[in-house]
Design a protein around this nucleic acid. Structure first.
Length: 383
RNA sequence: GGACAGGUGGGUGAGUGGUUAAAGCCAACAGACUGUAAAUCUGUCACUCUUUGCGAGUUACGAAGGUUCGAAUCCUUCCCUGUCCA
């Protein structure tokens, strides 16, 4: 346990067969039951639903927000003046903020990476903003995040080994300098900073990066650089070789995953935390995740279907509305569709995590895992 | 009754002699989406055949005729719609 962190991780049960863990992550804004899925609220909102939905209905314990986006608008200093991000967005539970490292990937035409940091040209107005390992820590401290992420370079796939080496070393240096800066500043603050393992899909680079990052003795570690275009098997493989190299007594976080069926397979590799935009984004695009598989509710086949979106779901959407009504809302472009669909999809993800956690606690995780096999298509995506 | 302006594919609306099965937008249908530039984006969108090729054929721009090598585009008549005047 890192002595300098307010974050405390308590492992309650470990699956003897797979190594999957169930635990408690204690933060200044509540205790998080792990393994946990964290809904993504980039701009201080999980698109489509209210904080009340998230807290009371879905019972999410921690959500993500984004440094790049909130820095640009409304600005970290304003958020700090207004009492911090929790108060600003009226979310009393835990917040993890990504550093902007993902925007290195997603906004690749609007940025330039140097050894010192990342020069972004704002997607809003073109203004230049230089993100450094130290500066991104400062911004996240101004937010008052519970878990901060170091600035990293999220590479696209595929990439040459040589380029991946250089990038990984740069990310490693950023983690070291960012972490040192964090340690100088965090005295008395109740938060934690997670480094991020990079190295593209090269096992040797992942191992080297993980080993070096472990020397930071951080309270938790992330595996980044996945879901960037690689086949899904490869994501699992990289996590399988990387997770065991991270401290057993600290939370392990795989960033940006995944499809519902993939979640248990990450947990089986010793992962405790995940996040993904899929449940919220796909919801808005008419795609529901259900216990019976995908239900593309916008399809014409549902226009007369008076059954619930997912007959095995207890969420407000499924217990109240028909597929026909949801399909109608989508077709009509009604804003309520996004809300109801997001409510369901996020509920579906969180419910998977709750059941998974329960199976670990009751020593039935291997059965749970077998009940959600990975069905890869020839293209390396999931069916 | 008269004078103008019009009638284009599911809707809207470009096109005013040939590269037009007919732009764009909308609708419809399907697909993508993984640390969110996303209530976004992509594809299809007359019919038939096809060895699946930017291939062939058929029908189509209110209706019927006509001019022309060639017509959604020009002419004639008719039908219909809108506005205005009686």
């Amino acid at each position: 346990m890192s002595s300098s962190s307010a974050l405390r991780f308590e492992i309650q049960a470990t699956c003897p067969e797979t190594g999957a863990r169930a635990g408690l992550l204690h933060t200044a804004h509540g205790t998080i039951e792990t393994p946990v899925f964290m809904p993504v609220g980039t701009q201080g909102t999980v698109k489509g639903i209210t904080q009340r939905d998230l807290q009371n209905d879905l019972d999410a314990r921690i959500i993500l927000a984004n440094t790049y986006h909130l820095f640009l608008r409304p600005g970290h200093e304003r958020i700090e003046r207004l009492g911090g991000l929790h108060k600003f967005m009226a979310w009393p539970r835990a917040i993890l903020t990504d550093s902007g490292g993902f925007q290195v990937f997603s906004l690749d035409t609007l940025r330039k990476v140097t050894d010192e940091g990342v020069l972004f040209r704002s997607h809003l107005n073109g203004d230049p903003h230089f993100f450094t390992p130290e500066g991104t820590v400062d911004v996240q401290l101004a937010f008052g995040s519970d878990i901060l992420m170091v600035l990293d370079e999220c590479l696209a796939y595929p990439v040459e080994h040589g380029a991946a080496v250089a990038s990984m070393r740069r990310t490693l240096r950023w983690a070291q300098s960012g972490y040192a800066h964090y340690l100088r500043r965090e005295k008395g603050l109740h938060c934690a900073l997670f480094p991020i393992v990079q190295g593209s899909m090269f096992r040797d680079l992942r191992a080297a990066c993980a080993d070096a990052l472990c020397e930071l003795d951080a309270p938790g570690y992330a595996i980044g650089g996945l879901s960037v275009g690689e086949p899904r098997e490869l994501s699992q493989e990289i996590v399988a070789v990387t997770a065991p190299l991270l401290p057993r007594d600290r939370p392990r976080y795989v960033m940006g995953v995944g499809m519902p069926d993939e979640l248990p397979h990450y947990v089986a590799k010793g992962i405790d935390m995940m996040d993904c935009v899929l449940p919220s984004r796909n919801a808005r695009n008419g795609y529901l995740f259900t216990s019976e598989g995908r239900v593309v509710i916008k399809q014409a086949q549902y226009q007369d279907d008076d059954g619930p979106a997912d007959p095995n779901c207890s969420c407000y959407t499924c217990s109240t509305f028909s597929r026909a009504y949801l399909r109608h809302l989508y077709q009509a472009g009604e804003i309520l569709f996004s809300t109801l669909a997001t409510l369901h999809n996020v509920h579906y993800y969180l419910d998977i995590m709750r059941r998974m956690r329960q199976s670990i606690m009751s020593e039935q995780f291997p059965e749970f895992l077998r009940s959600t096999p990975l069905r890869y298509t020839p293209a390396g995506t999931l069916d």
